[in-house]
């Protein structure tokens, strides 16, 4: 009669130096783990790589005696694989790669236009700095600048609305920008994202 050893017994055997035990463990969970990784990444070579990295981590942890017997062996191995899959997607997001198929992937052309949380914070900071500095400008310059930048009005429309000539509106805009630059330098503000 063939005796089937429990995973926990095989782990103990391996930790006490029986190299054959890890072979049984790898072969026992090979299909399940491979299927799990493949279902997430959908690529054969990548699945092999992640499978290999997962068991290298398992081997190192067991050899160092750092395995904690509280949980079950397979869920622990799956968790390692899961973390490695997440790491892979994080890296591949930073470095998009050609996937070797001739099928057209629309996502290779589409990008996420939204700013990430950090850039959004910086943008909000810049917007509020700029709004504060505009309030420091003389009223007539402030008025022209707001109409031009925030209301997207032409200088003709500005002149009609403020009752000054187009040249005066242009001059006010010019001075508004010069004064803003001075304020930026004086306050050592960085207005780039």
């Amino acid at each position: 009669m063939i005796q089937v050893l429990e995973d926990s017994q095989l782990v103990k055997d391996y930790m006490s130096g029986n190299e054959r035990a890890i072979e049984v463990l790898i072969n026992r969970h090979n299909a399940r783990l491979t299927g799990f990784i493949y279902s997430k990444v959908g690529d054969r070579e990548l699945t092999e790589d992640i499978f290999q990295d997962t068991f290298m981590k398992v081997i190192r942890t067991l050899k160092r005696g750092a395995y904690n017997e509280e949980g079950k062996f397979l869920p622990w191995v799956m968790r390692i694989a899961h973390n490695l899959i997440i790491d892979h997607f994080r890296k591949s997001n930073r470095m998009p790669m050609f996937d070797g198929t001739d099928s057209f992937n629309v996502f290779s052309l589409m990008g996420d236009e939204k700013l990430n949380a950090e850039k959004q914070l910086i943008k909000d900071q810049i917007d509020s700095d700029l709004a504060r500095m505009i309030k420091e400008l003389p009223e007539d310059q402030q008025e022209v600048l707001q109409m031009r930048l925030y209301k997207d009005m032409s200088f003709k429309e500005i002149s009609e609305n403020t009752g000054v000539s187009i040249n005066t509106a242009l001059g006010r805009m010019r001075y508004a920008l010069i004064n803003l630059r001075k304020l930026v330098e004086a306050n050592s503000i960085v207005l780039t994202n």
Binding site: E23, I26, N30, T34, F51, M56, K63
Partner: peptide
């Protein structure tokens, strides 16, 4: 893919034998 290649398993077993802590 249904299971990892025998080469991958062999690599892991060799790695295990060679690793000493």
């Amino acid at each position: 893919l249904v299971s990892a290649k025998p080469e991958t398993i062999k690599f892991l077993l060799d790695y295990s034998k060679s690793l000493k802590v």
